[in-house]
Amino acid sequence: MRLNDRFVPLFYLLSGLFGFAGVALAAAAAHGGGDAHLLASASAMCLAHAPALLALAFGIDKIKTAWLAGLLIGIGTLLFSADLVSLRFAGSGLFPMAAPTGGFAMMFGWLAVAAGAVFRVRP
């Protein structure tokens, strides 16, 4: 089994979980009061990155940097969203700077996608 093949199931799993969480968080934000904007932001990140992870899983043999991009986007989305959900329901975040760390991870994940244009898999 090649290294890239090991990431495909993880990307499918995260894509499905983020899609589910995104819809659930959007519903909670629509019906919640107070700090519901935190849930809306978490929902947006989950719903934006779920299809991206799915696409990276499909393109893992075509984009040399897909495994790195997927890991960064997956970990970043998880950190960012979980921190906002924790802040909303528990009153405190996961750890100091969890959301910004997740945000930076997502941004670097997208840069890894862009780097795939330069570091291409040759047929």
Rank of each mutant, 00 (worst) to 15 (best):
L56P: 00
G22W: 01
D35L: 06
P51V: 06
A42S: 03
L71W: 11
L79N: 08
P9W: 11
A44K: 08
A21S: 15
A30D: 10
A66Y: 06
L53R: 01
A52L: 15
A44T: 12
A26V: 03
V23F: 04
F58M: 09
L54K: 02
A42D: 05
A26T: 15
A30N: 14
L39F: 03
P51K: 02
A55W: 09
L13A: 15
A44L: 13
G19E: 03
A50Y: 04
I73Y: 10
L47V: 06
L68K: 12
G22Q: 03
A26F: 05
M45A: 13
H49R: 04
F18M: 15
T77D: 11
A40L: 12
W67Y: 09
H31Y: 10
S43D: 06
A66H: 09
A27P: 00
A21P: 12
D35C: 00
K64E: 09
H31S: 14
T77R: 02
Y12E: 14
L10V: 15
A50G: 07
L13W: 11
A28D: 09
A52M: 14
A48Y: 06
L71A: 13
I73R: 12
L71R: 07
G33E: 15
A52K: 03
Y12C: 14
A66W: 05
A28K: 05
A26N: 03
G59V: 07
A52F: 05
L71N: 09
T77L: 12
S81H: 00
F11C: 05
S81N: 04
L10W: 15
A42L: 08
A50P: 02
L14M: 15
F11A: 11
G59M: 14
W67E: 14
L25W: 13
P51L: 07
A24Y: 09
L72Q: 09
Y12G: 09
A55M: 12
F80R: 04
A36Q: 03
T77V: 14
A30E: 12
K64V: 05
L68S: 09
A48Q: 01
V23N: 03
I75K: 00
P51I: 07
L10H: 12
L38M: 11
G16E: 01
A48H: 00
A21E: 07
G16S: 02
A21K: 04
S81P: 03
M45C: 10
F58W: 11
G34Q: 10
L38D: 03
V23E: 02
A27K: 02
L54I: 04
F80S: 04
I63G: 01
F18G: 00
K64L: 12
A66D: 12
I75E: 07
A69W: 02
S41F: 05
L17I: 14
H31W: 06
A57T: 09
L56E: 07
L47E: 07
G32K: 03
L39V: 02
L13P: 01
A44P: 02
T77Y: 06
A28V: 02
I75D: 06
L56D: 07
S81G: 12
I73N: 08
L68T: 13
S15Q: 01
A69G: 05
A40Q: 13
G33M: 08
A29V: 03
G19V: 02
I63H: 01
L25R: 02
P51Q: 05
L53E: 05
K64W: 09
A27C: 13
L78W: 13
W67Q: 14
F20V: 14
A82R: 00
F20C: 11
L14F: 15
I75F: 13
T65R: 10
H31F: 13
A30W: 08
